[in-house]
Design a protein around this nucleic acid. Sequence first.
DNA 1: TGTCGTGATGAAATAACATAACATATCTTG
DNA 2: CAAGATATGTTATGTTATTTCATCACGACA
Lengths: 160, 160
Amino acid sequence: MQTANPATAFRMHDHDSCSDTVLDRAEALSVEAGIRMTRVRRRTLEILLEEHRALGAYEVLERLAADGFGSQPPVAYRALEFLVQNGFAHRIRRLNAFIACMQPGESHAPAFFICDECGAVAEAPEEDVRGALDKAAARLGFRIARVNVEVLGTCPACAE
Amino acid sequence: MQTANPATAFRMHDHDSCSDTVLDRAEALSVEAGIRMTRVRRRTLEILLEEHRALGAYEVLERLAADGFGSQPPVAYRALEFLVQNGFAHRIRRLNAFIACMQPGESHAPAFFICDECGAVAEAPEEDVRGALDKAAARLGFRIARVNVEVLGTCPACAE
DNA sequence: TGTCGTGATGAAATAACATAACATATCTTG
DNA sequence: CAAGATATGTTATGTTATTTCATCACGACA
């Protein structure tokens, strides 16, 4: 299944269909969850889906403004926050940027693999990582709320 | 040994001696590595060592300025970058802030456990995490350069 | 001793990222 | 439809980070 496929970003794929699938899925999940996928929000998700790299809020904002939406920062930040809150996008702290989630609705808090060269970002499941962190947390007496794993390096395409 | 002790931040300890030890170690390592631990840089490290939490660049800058150093952002950013480059401090992306490294010179790229309540940050070794990420990277064909693991939650002291 | 190159520091200006606060519009439900 | 809740738009401002250029300190070495 397309959306369960990790690290789509690093592989050849039919990007239009990959985007459409995710978008459809997000719509369906919104209805199911009773949350409102409005026009700005949907458009914001579309914008993120146009690339497998992270976009800064201001970059998103420019494109929203070009489409006739508001042109002030809060417009972008609100839409992005909504998407992140509801699992349709992720925030990459390292880059001060946002990226569409490729597995909306599925188990979360993935690890991000960020290519230094081309900026591509891939999500990968992080069960193993999480296991290791849980052990460490137990040793420290620390209660984990959220986890952020960001890996920098070189993607297969740029490695040559 | 004090400096090899993970997660000092979450435990009772003699903070003065913990700071001094790290500072001495950093000095020694600098000489060894032929890098210049200048006055601003040393003072910056001292400032970071005064707390087991992450300080923003501007917070550091204020204190540097109060001590008679330059008062413009690059002063702080340069010193902080030097410390990070050379393993004497870490940058916590999540917090847009910096923290002294408690194990300078030792194997690196720790995981950070950040308390939402009190802001304390502890470093913990991350071999297990790294192992899991290496496996994932191998599957993706990704070559890892650096790893960033930031865990949010509640520290033992605040958990009560 | 002088001058050259290198790396460190200082300061000004600006860029990039993010939020607070408030007004207006739009849904949604009784 | 009215009232409340949610979403959008705008102004203003706050926070974090970098670019650029000038100056300074120091070692190498002719």
